[in-house]
Amino acid sequence: MLHKTRGIVFKYFKYRDTSIIAKVFTEEFGLQTYIVNGVRSKSSKGKIALYQPLTLLELVVYYKESADINRISEVKCGSPFQTIPTDIRKTAIAMFVAEVLYKCVKEEGDVHDVFEFIYHSIKILDHLESDYQNFHLQFMLKLSKYLGFGIESSDFLDVFYAEEAQLAKELMDNSYEESAKLNNSSRRKMLDHIIKFFQTNVDSLKEINSIKVLQEVL
């Protein structure tokens, strides 16, 4: 049966010579796995761009609850990016965010709230013109609430000093447009603490490969 849904690409893997396996977080069904045939062939005319991490999609998909892999009937970009692909700092942030999401967000069923949060946050990142160096910090702190272990939990204080905990709360409560001012050293230290906080709550979040690129450009 066919269903319309919005989707957010988390990751894709090459499959055989011209196909991919795409991990897409959908508004209707949570995280789904889709096989997309022929998208890497010479005749696909750049359609692989639709499956870059964090791309926002409008989909018509086949869905069978018992199936591990489903298929996409129709796909188009729901909100084309203006700056994420061309701004090296935003690209690095997007790669990092996509990896965190892929390893942390597994829910199925009613995922409307977390989907809206992620979708809206990605659009803001694309439109921010300045002062977005702390976006990934704010995003992870805000995301933790949707994953069920916000900074009010006791685990949070185990990895933060009191002063850093207050700064983290400020980052979480502020909008992306009014981020706190941090230098590179403070930003990296805060990120280390946030990652440790996530790792105490998410078993699948171990090594984050994209953090090296992120630290090079921020």
Rank of each mutant, 00 (worst) to 15 (best):
I208P: 06
Y176P: 09
L167A: 13
N134R: 03
A162F: 13
I211G: 04
E207N: 11
L128V: 01
V213N: 10
L171M: 15
L157V: 11
F160K: 06
L143H: 04
G148V: 02
K206W: 05
L128P: 03
A168F: 10
Q199T: 07
S210L: 00
M140N: 00
L214P: 11
G148C: 04
Q199P: 03
E178L: 11
L128E: 04
T200W: 09
M140E: 00
E164C: 12
F197W: 09
F139D: 09
F139A: 07
A165V: 08
A180N: 08
H136P: 08
F135A: 02
I211V: 11
M190I: 07
E129A: 02
K145D: 06
A180K: 13
Q133K: 08
E178S: 14
E152G: 10
D173S: 13
Q199C: 06
L171V: 06
S210Q: 07
A165R: 10
N209P: 09
L143P: 03
Q138G: 15
M190D: 11
K212L: 12
K142S: 02
N134T: 04
E163I: 11
I194C: 07
I211M: 13
L205F: 04
F197P: 07
E164W: 09
M172W: 08
H193E: 12
K145A: 08
S210I: 01
M172G: 09
E216A: 03
G148S: 07
N209D: 13
Q215N: 15
E163C: 11
E177V: 06
A165F: 11
D203E: 15
Q199I: 10
L141K: 00
L128F: 01
D203R: 14
